[in-house]
Design a protein around this nucleic acid. Sequence first.
DNA 1: CGCATAATTGATGGTTATCAAGACCAGTGG
DNA 2: CCACTGGTCTTGATAACCATCAATTATGCG
Lengths: 246, 246
Amino acid sequence: MTASERSCLVQKLSHYVLLNDIDKGHLARLEREERSYPAHYDVRRVDDPVDELFVIKSGWIHSSVDMPDGRRQIVKLHHPGDIVGLHDIAFRHATTALRAVEPVCLCPFPKSELDEIFTEAPRLAALILMLSLRDNATFMDLVRAMGRMSARERMAYMLLELHARLAITDRAATDTIRMPLTQSEIGDLLGLTNVYVSRTLTSLEADGYIRRSTGHVRLLRPADMARMCDFQDRHTTLDTHWFPRA
Amino acid sequence: MTASERSCLVQKLSHYVLLNDIDKGHLARLEREERSYPAHYDVRRVDDPVDELFVIKSGWIHSSVDMPDGRRQIVKLHHPGDIVGLHDIAFRHATTALRAVEPVCLCPFPKSELDEIFTEAPRLAALILMLSLRDNATFMDLVRAMGRMSARERMAYMLLELHARLAITDRAATDTIRMPLTQSEIGDLLGLTNVYVSRTLTSLEADGYIRRSTGHVRLLRPADMARMCDFQDRHTTLDTHWFPRA
DNA sequence: CGCATAATTGATGGTTATCAAGACCAGTGG
DNA sequence: CCACTGGTCTTGATAACCATCAATTATGCG
């Protein structure tokens, strides 16, 4: 099992359930192949046929939906160990575009692998469903942020969400977040303009909430920020009691 | 199978896959019990323990997330035949509040029923996952609407989304939508105020896009509205090719 | 009929977008 | 080592969209 030791996917999923060797075998099959892409590469466009999914080995990816006139909304960030494109398998054609934020390494695997997981590994199937349900919960959080929060609150929300999400794999509890996104991308994620992202970050920094250095953000007052946006962590604990027995 | 004939759940799911008698048996078990609630009843509050889910027999429900200061965001509407609360089973406590829009009849069932479905009916399990993935896609659409669309575009999006969703069970292809939501609730759904919802609806009506009558909205120029907000239907067709065999 | 809730309408203000110019920064080639 | 270059970030001025506040009208229900 040395191969699966190094797998971000196995590492991430093991945070929630104890995986047996059969499960790990299934997961290892998802990471057989590797492909690398440069920064800003469009891995998939909207309406492309969806034959394969990806496990991210390294680098960040984002899913976005654009309007015909060019307005862009980034709907989700994907990090190493994430399964990407799951939400598209319910449709014939891709509902979102996938784009590399930075140089990435992806492991593509065919839809049909899921078929086997569903018939042979009900516990893994339940886990995949749970990840989808967790995604749902974070989307609801995001909808609330976009519908009812000011720019400053949204920014706090995004930083805390990123922090909680990355903390699962980065065991060293640190208050610094690597931030490879440009301010335009942050704007597309929060429904703001790059200009206002700049002003908001400057203002948060002036008020002592964060400190910025190139490519990184440090959270100086995370508790105050959590209060500011009523932040809920959806990542560190999930309920697996309802899973079928191993 | 007379009982399942009348089931909105079976009717809705049958739109996507052919269900055999064993599947229908599983689903029928979800609707054994019934409970009725009056309009505006809070079926569940945030942080309540989540022991049971619901199938809606009649009436509309909504899921909402509030901010401590009272700002409210409705994140999802639920209609007859929907399974409600699925997204909460990934957590110990409810992430959203459930509230009856109008008088409703719900069928509660315990989480543990899902366990059996996952071990005994992989095809149903796949279907449930697909519904969750479809929800994901509609959340992404909603995030785009809230992040990048004007009030008028958002309103068009919401009306078209409702229309497409209700069309699955209402076989009679009609251009009229029943609308039991108040304008305040529509505002909470779209991230607007009740005042601006009123202005936006009035303006859409003045421009000939819709016609309102008490409790109903008629879509006069659905194609133009779809173009206005780049609407994508996520409900009428889904891809079930990847499902395990029956 | 009377009451509570919902919808409308008007006046004003705040948050954020837009437009535009300049500063910074990393990488590149001379 | 330095100028060049393209992208990113910052800052200022102005404007649009939507929120807020407040008053009035409409609607539905007992």
